[in-house]
Design a protein around this nucleic acid. Sequence first.
DNA 1: CGCTAAACTGAGGGTGCCTCGAAATTTATC
DNA 2: GATAAATTTCGAGGCACCCTCAGTTTAGCG
Lengths: 186, 186
Amino acid sequence: MSTARRPRADARRNYERLLAEADAAFAERGIGASLESIARGAGVAIGTLYGHFPTRRALVGALLRERNEALFELGDRLVADNPPGALATWVRAVTEHASTYSGLAALLAGGLDDEASELHESCLRMAGTGERLVALARASGTLRPDATGADITALTTAAAALREDLSAAAADRLVALCLDGLARRP
Amino acid sequence: MSTARRPRADARRNYERLLAEADAAFAERGIGASLESIARGAGVAIGTLYGHFPTRRALVGALLRERNEALFELGDRLVADNPPGALATWVRAVTEHASTYSGLAALLAGGLDDEASELHESCLRMAGTGERLVALARASGTLRPDATGADITALTTAAAALREDLSAAAADRLVALCLDGLARRP
DNA sequence: CGCTAAACTGAGGGTGCCTCGAAATTTATC
DNA sequence: GATAAATTTCGAGGCACCCTCAGTTTAGCG
């Protein structure tokens, strides 16, 4: 066994180049950037891009993998330590993550119920963390009792969209207002 | 003067057909629906479509004209009468308006600072109405003092986006929470 | 009717998506 | 090294869409 030859060197190189180019393109022109231009920029034929990433989503997924790691680590820490303002920290982190590239928020939101998506698992995990943080906050009496994890999902989705459509400031303000609305009335 | 001949009958007919077909297409497939398919559906060559509507935005603008009228009428009435819950009514109305077609919310948000857009004027007017309603509510002491018209713009934009990305229920909930956050603490 | 401005047409040049058979290159083996 | 096998790359090609513009048609006035 163990006979799996290791991947060819050129393949590995092209893979990395494509990732780098895609990151730049998505950051600059949004998640809808032309795949052909990405291939061109990576000095590779379009077929090669499709060989590595059969779909645009696969490409986005690969790019997000690292960021997702970091985000989930933060989430786990917040759940474990439950520091003051944990929920707000989480909402802000997710919002920022979902606005990495313009257009990403919608893609992620869509991925929430699209089973086939590579991003589906990540979405579920984010939702789960939100859920747990809400439970903690409610238990400590800082949230109104009808607050749910779905509220957090909605808030982060909305805030991420707002960042793209309007401004980061507007999004931050929305988050603050909403969290205020969610807080337990004294 | 006054010599402007009235438009040819065929032109008028094609104009109406295009509008009808575009409304159906945008409603069904979102604001990015193919213009060629719209022309086809209207039984007209693609050049004719461009003759009437030089840009996709012009087409959307024409479709929205009537709806805009109705919305502004409501807005003026709310400002004039200032009934209880005026602000909430307005927010819900604008949100619904901005989700007429999927993708419209982003277009409108973009139009807010794009001077050239036909939609620019409408956006300004909506913002103005929001502003006035906020002023009224603040004067009557039902809003916290740091609430602004921009908050309302942000909220409606976010809620409209949420309707598209998640669900109308989530959007409604967000609106409720935010308005709650904006209410004056007793 | 005939005329003319107005309106319509649709081919054509770009760009982008995605597929697939042929060609090239790397790795393993002798 | 040489060679065989597997892997990867290449890019033309079919399809859809965007938008323009020169040539053609047509409504409606006189």
